[in-house]
Amino acid sequence: MYIIVFLIIISLIIAIGFLLAFFWAVKDGQFEDDHTPAIRILFDDNKTKKK
């Protein structure tokens, strides 16, 4: 039965991991500009080496 205590501690640690990931994303500014990255991802990297 006390395996539940162990499992809950593990689940909490994982949850805290996600919480920290969220904090990191906020700090990194991922919620500030949600439009530009959507365009940026469509560019090819090395298309212009044709000359």
């Binding site: 805290i16 996600f18 904090f23 906020v26």
Partner: peptide
């Protein structure tokens, strides 16, 4: 200075709310 503290507070409260509910 963009005030990001609301996001931190919100994230933390949501996290605590969910886990307390579960427990």
């Amino acid at each position: 200075v963009i005030d990001k503290s609301l996001y931190y507070k919100l994230g933390l409260a949501g996290f605590a709310f969910g886990n307390i509910m579960l427990l």
